[in-house]
Design a protein around this nucleic acid. Structure first.
Lengths: 261, 261
DNA sequence: GAATGTGAAGGCTTTCACAGCT
DNA sequence: AGCTGTGAAAGCCTTCACATTC
């Protein structure tokens, strides 16, 4: 998603596929749990189950990192934890700023799994002067005016945006101008950033909508595929581009209709 | 991610690719914005820009829904809003429960984009008796004991889990047993669910770790590829599986080392 | 002329299945 | 005997580029 990297020849034997990178944190979490229970080694099968993937995928993923397993035995837990941590860059410390300390921003600031594993909340920033100085998660909320100073002073390269949608792009621009090159965006907006800046987004309502799509399918199946099938065969040409559209789904959901399962 | 559907022959001409489904909400959001500004039609180029994708992808995506555009002209905004909403199942009302009303759960309950567009928070549930009855986002927090009643009573098919990791699987099991078939999981755990139940996860620390991975790469490039190259050519056989691993990255991030860009 | 809809090509990801090591 | 590491096959997804339609 929005890798934003300048077109790299993709040469490098070092190119770990994006899909693999996205799973490394999962493996790391499962391994850390094993490590805490002092389990010394683990097979691809066991680890894959713990991480919720299949073992072939896991082995392929690990093969991009190197040959860290032992045939006939499995993987050394501690060693893998170390290797994956290093690969992900978690053996160094990443200062992070959170901008927008509303409900969500505060929740993020309080989130435990944040501070551990290489990430450190360097500052909380909010545009509301009334919030300034308030303590959240043990840190004082600072005013947006200080954003550039904070980023430069703390060598922050990762910024978290938890502002309302309307403010997100401007905050993003300022973060980037100040030196941030990775952004985690919780605001429901598409951010545009220059090349070389990575953006990842987390969007509650998108996730819900995807779930709703599949729910709808399930409901359709339950009452026989007949209905869906009928819709399918509707000669598309017959659609009249101005009949239904007049009624956009009102703010309080119209057509409660069938009700799922 | 974790589609969990029973192996479907994938026959149906109606099979919209998962990647397309995941983008429909994006298009819908962009279209809604246009609709509010009373823009009547939009080209694939314009809409694609607004949604942050390229126009070929957008057209291909729309082609799975049907031929809703007009050559030489573009797409009718209202009509598309309606069609995508219908496709996503947003023309009906989806009652949702949120379990775990801590910082994050409260933030989710208060999230505006939630209530609109077909989703309605039917109840907030928490295991802490001290929380019971407290009002959050205009709704009373109810105790976990009532979970099954609430789900059945409100015909809830979508559940949001915002509990600590340790409680997530049990909550999930209870939701599913009570009839929930879609779960949005904010707890940092892999949930296991029976076939036919969809799970999507939102995980802050995974996202941060992915960003850190790319940040690290950027930093490496800045100081010349030499270092990375050297690591690459390390004869893997020489790696000694018990040298470094003894020191797992301590809870407070060791090896602060180089410091990124 | 302008912009959609879509086969075909190209890339990426997953899965298979087995050779190779311990 | 057991389990990793990996070519090769299969399946998705994206991008191209152009015939088609308005």
């Amino acid at each position: 998603m929005a890798t934003g990297r300048t077109h790299r020849p993709a040469t490098r034997s070092r190119g770990i596929p994006e899909a693999t990178v996205a799973r490394l944190p999962l493996y790391l979490r499962a391994l850390t749990a094993l490590s805490e229970r002092s389990v010394p080694t683990v097979s691809s099968e066991e680890l894959a189950t713990a991480a919720g993937v299949n073992s072939a995928k896991l082995r392929k993923d690990f093969s991009y990192l190197g040959s860290y397993g032992t045939r006939g035995v499995g993987y050394d837990v501690e060693y893998l934890v170390y290797q994956i941590s290093r690969e992900l860059g978690l053996t160094q410390d990443w200062p992070v700023v959170i901008v927008g300390i509303g409900n969500l921003g505060a929740a993020l600031a309080n989130y435990g799994g944040f501070a551990s594993r290489g990430f450190r909340v360097a500052a909380l920033i909010d545009a509301d002067p009334a919030q300034t100085g308030k303590m959240v998660a043990g840190l004082p909320v600072r005013h947006t005016d200080e954003l550039e100073d904070i980023v430069e002073h703390n060598q922050v390269s990762i910024g978290v945006i938890a502002t309302p949608a309307g403010a997100a792009q401007e905050v993003c621009d300022r973060l980037v101008a100040a030196g941030v090159t990775s952004i985690l965006n919780f605001a429901p907006t598409v951010l545009s950033v220059p090349d070389g800046v990575d953006v990842r987004k987390v969007d509650l309502s998108i996730e819900l909508q995807i779930l709703a799509f599949h729910e709808q399918r399930k409901a359709g199946e339950d009452l026989g595929e007949a209905v869906a099938a009928a819709r399918d065969t509707l000669p598309k040409a017959v659609a009249e581009p101005v009949t239904e559209p007049a009624r956009r789904p009102g703010p309080d959901g119209d057509v409660p209709a069938v009700m799922p399962a």
